[in-house]
Amino acid sequence: MKKTLLFASLLSFALFSCGEKSTTTETGSETHASGDASSANSVSVSSSKTTSGIIDAYLAVKDALVADDAASAAAKSADLVAVLKSYDIAGAQTNDPEELERLQVEATGFAEKLATADIAAQRESFQALSVVLKDMLKIAGTDRTLYHQYCPMYKGNTGGMWLSASEDVKNPLFGSSMLTCGRVEETLALN
């Protein structure tokens, strides 16, 4: 009986935490758990086709994690590693090629760790990769609008982020257990 009551309490907490329409952060700005990007910060990034392959491969891994498919995420990570390694920094129109190269190396390292069969380890590497890739795309540019999404409940409520091509939240850090937990934090919009 106690276990059932405890489980019901934890489930209620999880649903309540991710189901809120809006909350106020310490800075006083309004954030949304519904995936609504209308009040998210918008950052202008340059238009670039050079990152298309990286974004496509990243989104394929994200979709596999959303579907709780560790085998597919591991297989798709090989494509991501390949496009990251072959990314031509010299061809990128950037003022900071050294920082771009550092981010490329770091992103490749996290992408290589996705080759494991352990979905929890994949999700941890994917979250770290997402942070680095967002910074890389801000420098290198993108071929589409991307949404930086954030789930406050990931990793013991320390939170985690990922990038999506849609403002609809499909959480790769929890998959089917908390599929819509999260909100749009920032929009990477084309110039």
Rank of each mutant, 00 (worst) to 15 (best):
Y150T: 00
R144F: 00
E124D: 13
C151D: 07
M136F: 14
F126A: 05
L146E: 00
M153C: 06
A140M: 05
I119V: 12
G156I: 12
L137C: 00
F126V: 04
Y150H: 12
Q122F: 12
T116Y: 03
S130N: 06
S130P: 07
W162Q: 07
R144P: 02
L163Y: 09
A117I: 10
G159K: 04
S125R: 04
M136I: 03
E124M: 11
I119M: 04
E124I: 02
A117D: 08
W162L: 00
T145Q: 07
Q127C: 09
M136H: 13
R144K: 13
M136G: 11
D135Q: 15
P152V: 08
G160L: 06
L137K: 10
A121E: 14
I119G: 00
T145P: 01
L137E: 07
Y150W: 14
S164T: 12
T116E: 01
D118Y: 06
P152K: 06
A117Y: 06
A140F: 01
D118K: 02
D143Q: 02
Q149M: 04
Q149E: 05
V132K: 10
L129E: 07
G156V: 08
L146P: 04
C151N: 09
Q127W: 13
F126R: 01
R123N: 11
A165V: 13
G141Y: 01
L133A: 09
H148I: 10
R144T: 00
S125D: 09
M136L: 08
S130K: 02
G160W: 00
G159R: 06
I139N: 14
V131K: 10
Y150N: 13
L146T: 04
V131P: 01
Y147Q: 08
M136N: 00
C151R: 04
G160Q: 08
G141P: 02
G159E: 01
A120K: 15
Y154G: 08
Y154I: 05
I139L: 14
A121T: 05
K155D: 00
M136Q: 05
T145D: 00
S166F: 05
G160K: 03
